[in-house]
Amino acid sequence: MHIAEGFLPPAHAIAWGVASAPFVVHGVRSLTREVKEHPESTLLLGASGAFTFVLSALKIPSVTGSCSHPTGTGLGAILFRPPIMTVLGTITLLFQALLLAHGGLTTLGANVFSMAIVGPWAGYAVYRLLKRYDVPLMVAVFFGAFVADLSTYCVTSVQLAMAFPDPSSGFIGALGKFGGIFAVTQIPLAVSEGLLTVIVMRLLVQSSKGELTRLGVLLQGKRSATKATETATTEKTATTEETAATEKTTTETGASA
């Protein structure tokens, strides 16, 4: 990823474009609504897009017809949800195809599907799952960015294996070869991207705490207070039960005596 211009068979290129189109349309609507309702988020949206553009431009040669690089989509997915990140990722891929010769127009649909659709959704799902179980924010951010990066290359491996199956072992053999080659460069890149995303999120917590609270990344004061009250109530109930059990035991002991 990015898959190079003209590398995929025409039928595959068209199919991936058709598969990506509904997600992009939905993302455009979500982005339009976000900007209309919260124009103050424009700066953070631009920063998320720039983060993706810069990281995904740092390519390393890998599989023939493709390359390895960070994706940068995890941050935007966590901040603004995957549909909006789909639009930011699509714009990034389009600009890189036109200005940097990374990827291409014929393979835009396939690249969008792997990097701007699957990556953000997978990373966001992991992030939300970890937050549901009260995992610390920065740990959830790290694994969200890590999975967003790595899942992109898993999908790219599938796309290449479908287009170029192994002559003897078919799709499965090709998938093993493409995935194995990608893993050498991509796992370290995914770890690095996760750490970098944590650093950026820490800076945003310091500089844009109000905006992160509105976006739901940070707990609102009311929700935090409610959670603290629930914890205190639970602890108080447990203490009461322990006291009652102790008094009961003391009473029974006295009666026996």
Score class of each variant (00 low, 15 high):
23 F>S: 09
108 L>Y: 04
131 K>S: 15
134 D>F: 13
249 T>M: 00
123 G>L: 00
177 K>I: 15
218 L>T: 01
247 E>Q: 02
148 A>M: 02
54 V>A: 09
225 A>G: 00
90 T>I: 00
248 K>Q: 03
151 S>L: 08
145 A>P: 11
144 G>C: 13
25 V>F: 06
121 W>H: 05
36 K>Y: 10
128 R>L: 04
37 E>L: 13
75 L>C: 13
22 P>D: 15
96 Q>I: 07
174 A>H: 06
39 P>I: 03
10 P>Y: 07
200 V>A: 04
206 Q>H: 11
44 L>Q: 10
148 A>C: 08
228 A>L: 14
1 M>I: 11
124 Y>K: 07
88 L>E: 08
133 Y>K: 09
160 L>M: 12
247 E>D: 08
248 K>L: 03
34 E>L: 14
245 A>F: 02
230 E>R: 15
217 V>M: 05
18 V>Q: 00
21 A>Q: 09
14 I>D: 09
159 Q>P: 11
239 T>Q: 11
27 G>N: 00
152 T>H: 07
36 K>A: 05
183 A>P: 08
167 P>R: 06
65 G>A: 13
132 R>Y: 06
245 A>D: 11
146 F>E: 11
98 L>W: 13
224 S>Q: 15
227 K>Y: 10
154 C>H: 02
131 K>W: 06
174 A>V: 08
143 F>H: 05
70 P>R: 00
192 S>P: 06
18 V>Y: 03
231 T>K: 15
52 T>M: 12
28 V>R: 01
90 T>D: 05
253 T>G: 08
195 L>V: 12
180 G>L: 10
7 F>D: 12
251 T>R: 12
218 L>A: 06
247 E>K: 03
